[in-house]
């Protein structure tokens, strides 16, 4: 079985993101970029499945800017076998990304697609579900435990009520949650080795994706600021303050 992992290049999760001066987007100049943290977990899971003999090949794909090569190289250094970048400099919204991934999944004849549960830039949480719908295959979202037995997968999902188990037939789309695993660190020799692994760059247009209607993205603004910062000196003062506010 071939596993396809979707990777998005996003602003690193440690960066405090700022709206740009014009209010048309966020400041990206000189800002650290990384693999979407959930996607790193997806890569790790794919590698573990391969190491257990449950998959033969791990292919990482990204639809995005030329610079996303860096994130694909990181995934190769983690241990992925090969990478494909469909280069698109403009913003790709979730439905377009899902249609693009569908083309890739079918061309690669993948048996399992592992994605992050959400990209931490747009926080959409859509692509996996959309891909599964278009592919007419099962979805297991927000997964924190995954077991393959033969042609089925047992997935434990993190839901509002707790943890839920479902079983799906392969091929399937799985979106991963934070507690699924802890991604490995890449070591220097792995980075060197990754430089020789195949990374194909192709134009997005080559996928022949019919562009769906897109949301028109308008103004960006910082969230309303909370008036905080007051400290109280003692427990008694705290209780009094809460009583005065009428919340206790």
């Amino acid at each position: 079985m071939k596993i396809l992992v979707g990777i998005k290049r996003v602003i690193d999760y440690n960066v405090r993101v700022q709206v740009n001066r014009e209010g048309t987007g966020v400041v990206k100049d000189g800002v650290k970029m990384s693999i979407n943290p959930f996607d790193e977990i997806a890569v790790e899971e794919a590698l573990r499945m391969k190491e257990r003999g449950e998959a033969e090949e791990v292919v990482v794909v990204s639809v995005g800017p030329e610079a996303a090569q860096q994130q694909l190289r990181t995934a190769l250094a983690m241990g992925a076998d090969r990478a494909v970048l469909y280069q698109a400099e403009e913003e790709i919204q979730p439905l377009a990304a899902a249609r693009a991934l569908l083309q890739i999944v079918q061309a690669e004849d993948a048996g399992l697609v592992l994605l992050g549960k959400q990209a931490i830039d747009d926080d959409a949480n859509q692509v996996g579900q959309m891909l599964a719908a278009l592919w007419d295959r099962p979805q297991a979202t927000f997964v924190s435990k995954l077991e393959r037995s033969g042609d089925t997968l047992k997935a434990m999902r993190e839901v509002d009520a707790g943890l839920e188990n479902i079983e799906v037939d392969l091929p399937a789309v799985v979106t991963v949650d934070l507690r699924l695993n802890e991604p490995r660190f890449v070591k220097m020799p792995d980075i060197m080795k990754a430089k020789r692994k195949p990374l194909d760059i192709k134009p997005f247009a080559e996928l022949g994706v019919e562009m769906p209607p897109q949301l028109e993205v308008g103004a960006h603004e910082p969230p309303p600021k909370r008036q905080g910062g007051t400290k109280v000196e003692s427990v008694a003062a705290l209780v009094q303050a809460l009583k005065d506010k009428g919340v206790l």
Partner: peptide, 11 residues
Amino acid sequence: IYAGNVITTVK
């Protein structure tokens, strides 16, 4: 978006 650090308007 961005974990609530930015609010966008979409149409």
